[in-house]
Design a binder for these strands. Structure first.
Lengths: 206, 206
DNA sequence: TTAAATAGACTGACCAGTCCGTCATTATAA
DNA sequence: TTATAATGACGGACTGGTCAGTCTATTTAA
C-alpha cells in the first residue's frame, strides 16, 4: 500500500500546486508582487491561507515558482517547434511564431516577466537566463548556420541580434497586453518579422 | 515687499519640490511604487516625512509628479532636436539619438515608465499618451514626408512603425539598464538603427 | 482511532498619512 | 536699535490599517 499511498499523495500535492499556481499567476500578473495579497490567492483558489503555506514556503517561493513554470513551458514549446523545421530561416520564423502564440494564450505572463525584474533582479534573472540560454544557444546555432549559407549578413553578431529580436517581441507583447489586446498579435508580428528580416537578410539579387 | 516675498516663497517651494522629486525618482526607480517608503525618500532628501507631505498630497501624487516631469523633459528634448535637422531621415535619426541619450543620462526613469504601468494603468497612460501623441504626431508627419519623397516603403503604416521603433528602444534601454549598463547604449543603438532602417528604407539602387 | 489536510483567527511588523511642538525668520513696536 | 510677536517651515512621534506568516481547532480520510 505504501506505493499507492505515495502516488496518491503525490497526485494531491501536484494538483494543489497547480491549482494555486494557476490562480497566483493571474493575480500576480494583474497586481505585481508587492500589491498582491496571499489571502486573495487563497480565496480565489477556494483554499485557506494556511493551505497555501503548506504547498509553498512563502510568498517569494510562490512567485518564483510561477516564473519557473512559465519559462520552462515557453522554452520547451519553442525548441520543439524549431525542431519541426529544416531550413534555418524557417526555424527562426517558427520560433517567432511560437513565442507569439504562447503569449497570445498566456498574455498575463509577460507582465510577470517584465514587471518584476527589478524587485527580484538576481533571482528571476538567474532562473530566466538558465532556461533562456539553452534556448538562445540553439537559436544561435541556427543563426550561424544561416550565415554560413549566406542568408544572413555576416557582420551581425548572432547573440546581439537575438537579444534585439527578443526585446522587440517582449515589449511588443507587453504593449499589446497593456492596451487591451485590441488587435491580433499575429497580424502585427508579420510586420515586425518583415522589418527584422529585411534588415537582417543578405540581398538575394546580387 | 509683497512681491519679493512671493518670489522667495515660490523659489523655496520649487527648490524643495525639485529636491524631493530628484530623490524620489531614484528610489521609486529602484524599488517600484509599492515597495518604496516615503520615509526613505524623506531621509535621503534630508527632510522629515511631514515636510514631504507639505509639498505633495500623498505618495501617489509624488509618484505621478515624477512621471510627468520625466515625460515632459523627454518630449521637449526630442522635439527640439528634430527641429534642428532638415531632412526627414535625419530627423528620425536625431530623434532616436536623443531618445537614447536621454535615457543614458536618466537611466532609472525607464523603469518608472515601464515598471509601474499596471499599477497605475489609466493615470500614467493618460499623462504619458498626452505628451506622447504630440510627439508622435510630429514624427508621423516626418514619416509621411519621407514616404512622399520615396525614401520609406509606402505600404508601411507610420503609426505602427513608430510604435515598433518606440518599443524596440524602450525595451532595449530597459534591458540595458537591468543588466547593469555593461555596454554603451550608443554602440548598440547603431545596430538597432541599422536593422530598423535597412528594413524600412526603399532600396536605393533600383 | 489516528494521522494528515485544511481553514481562518491571530500576531507582530511595517508603513502611509496626521498632528503637534519647535525653531528660524521676518514683521512690529518701543 | 532692540525687544517682542507673529508666521510658517519643519521634524518626527504617533495612529490606524494592512498583510505575511504562524498556530491551533476542526474536518476528512483511512
Amino acid at each position: 500500500m505504501k506505493i499507492t499511498d505515495k502516488v496518491k499523495k503525490k497526485d494531491l500535492t501536484q494538483m494543489r500546486q497547480k491549482q494555486i499556481l494557476d490562480v497566483a499567476t493571474r493575480v500576480f500578473s494583474k497586481k505585481g508582487f508587492a500589491s498582491t495579497q496571499v489571502d486573495e490567492i487563497a480565496g480565489l483558489a477556494g483554499l485557506g491561507k494556511g493551505t497555501v503555506y503548506r504547498y509553498f514556503k512563502d510568498k517569494k517561493d510562490l512567485f518564483l515558482s510561477i516564473v519557473d513554470r512559465g519559462i520552462r513551458n515557453l522554452k520547451d514549446l519553442v525548441l520543439e517547434a524549431m525542431a519541426e523545421e529544416k531550413e534555418p530561416l524557417d526555424k527562426i520564423k517558427k520560433a517567432i511564431e511560437t513565442y507569439l502564440k504562447f503569449f497570445e494564450k498566456h498574455s498575463y505572463l509577460i507582465r510577470v516577466f517584465i514587471h518584476e525584474q527589478s524587485e527580484f533582479q538576481k533571482r528571476i534573472q538567474k532562473r530566466y537566463y538558465q532556461h533562456y540560454y539553452e534556448h538562445v544557444n540553439k537559436i544561435e546555432e541556427v543563426f550561424k548556420k544561416a550565415q554560413t549559407l549566406g542568408l544572413i549578413k555576416k557582420k551581425i553578431k548572432p547573440k546581439l541580434a537575438i537579444a534585439i529580436l527578443t526585446d522587440m517581441l517582449n515589449s511588443f507583447i507587453y504593449t499589446w497586453q497593456l492596451t487591451g489586446q485590441k488587435y491580433s498579435l499575429s497580424e502585427s508580428f508579420s510586420l515586425i518579422t518583415e522589418i527584422y528580416f529585411t534588415g537582417i537578410l543578405e540581398e538575394k539579387d546580387k
